[in-house]
Design a protein around this nucleic acid. Structure first.
Lengths: 134, 134
DNA sequence: TCCTATTTGATAATGATTACTACTTTTAAA
DNA sequence: TTTAAAAGTAGTAATCATTATCAAATAGGA
């Protein structure tokens, strides 16, 4: 895989963001530095880099795929009030995947684990300032 | 919510299927009994019934939504070879959601948990008969 | 430097889902 | 029971995210 400037900058900007952006959100950011870049290039490179294991593609609920520069195993949690998607720091002591492997007979290769709920901030400020992240 | 014949038959046919069908797969089945039904009716009713908690919508973005008549908490596992989506019979002893709640500070309301891997059948018959379900 | 497989930008095509519209059925109030 | 508002339906157009296509550009080794 050639390291083009487009690819490099897409990766750089993704690494800066903690928000697990969609392809079009990332496109807007990258466009600041490469005004002539095409949205197709962003999609293509995100796909390639996730195939290569450099980044992780998150296929969760909602219409759009999201991308994460952090590839170490961790789960995500989605606030149904404000829309933000946060990392879950702790994962179960015994790796869940091996439990699932035992229970299902499948060879578990990957997981798409997303929880939905209400974040601490939204639980505090009830009913105000909704949807600031979504 | 009125129980129309369309709605009733969609629900009946969904309950018969163990395959977690997509809206269009279910449409083909329901069409056998109601030849004049519209695909839009299938989408609309699956959405309504999942809002009402009668069925469960499985959302893994980038792919088609799937629907499950079994609403009790259970996880799914997706075979990347043949495409089938199976139930995972066992779930972790202590409910995972409460662990996640503790770890994240979120009030966990729902989860979308899907594992990917290779099913026992596909592990046996290596390289032959791929994609019979996808 | 030169060659060529890879990548790019621009845009068309695709495919799943949702929106819309006019018509029908149900519900419930007068 | 009329009757009119509400809910639902079939058929189809529109939408939206994503992928495919293709001519032009370019990275990076020979």
């Amino acid at each position: 895989m050639r390291m083009t400037s487009q690819r490099e900058i897409i990766l750089e900007e993704l690494r800066k963001l903690k928000s697990h952006p969609t392809a079009d959100e990332l496109y807007l950011v990258v466009k600041q530095r490469l005004p002539r870049i095409s949205i197709a290039t962003v999609y293509r490179n995100l796909e390639k880099m996730s195939e290569a294991g450099i980044i992780k593609k998150l296929e969760y609920s909602g219409r759009q795929k999201r991308f994460d520069a952090a590839t170490h195993p961790h789960y995500h949690i989605h606030c149904i009030r404000c829309g933000r998607i946060a990392d879950v720091k702790t994962i179960p002591g015994r790796r869940l995947n091996s439990m699932i492997s035992d229970a299902s007979g499948y060879e578990v290769i990957d997981d798409q684990v997303e929880f939905s709920g209400i974040c601490p901030e939204c639980r505090n400020r009830k009913n105000i300032n909704q949807n600031t992240f979504s």
